[in-house]
């Protein structure tokens, strides 16, 4: 049978994004379920950079979604 798998680059990218978000959700859930005493304080500089990166990625996603909506 001759089947063509029509997955363009955007579909592949969206699949990767979904899987990465799922990994983040799992990691954050595990972290939230840990006893508070056992969570060591992490470097505040690292956390700020992480938050900044999350904000930047969300901003970029918003921009893309808006562009896609407005054609």
């Amino acid at each position: 049978m001759d089947m063509e798998l029509d997955l363009d680059e955007s579909s592949l990218a969206i699949g990767r994004i979904e899987r990465a978000l799922s990994r983040i959700e799992t990691a954050l859930t595990e972290r939230a379920n840990r006893p508070a005493a056992k969570v060591p304080p992490s470097d505040s500089g690292d956390q700020s950079a992480l938050k900044a990166e999350v904000a930047a990625v969300i901003g970029e996603l918003d921009r893309l979604i808006s562009e896609a909506k407005n054609g």
């Binding site: 363009d8 680059e9 955007s10 592949l12 990218a13 969206i14 990767r16 994004i17 990465a20 978000l21 990994r23 983040i24 990691a27 992480l50 990166e53 999350v54 930047a56 990625v57 970029e60 996603l61 893309l64 562009e67 896609a68």
Partner: peptide, 17 residues
């Protein structure tokens, strides 16, 4: 758009790690 999505996928994967 494809390029932008791929770049975001890279960044989110890095964030997840």
């Amino acid at each position: 758009h494809d390029r932008a999505l791929l770049q975001i996928a890279d960044r989110i994967e890095t964030l997840a790690t």
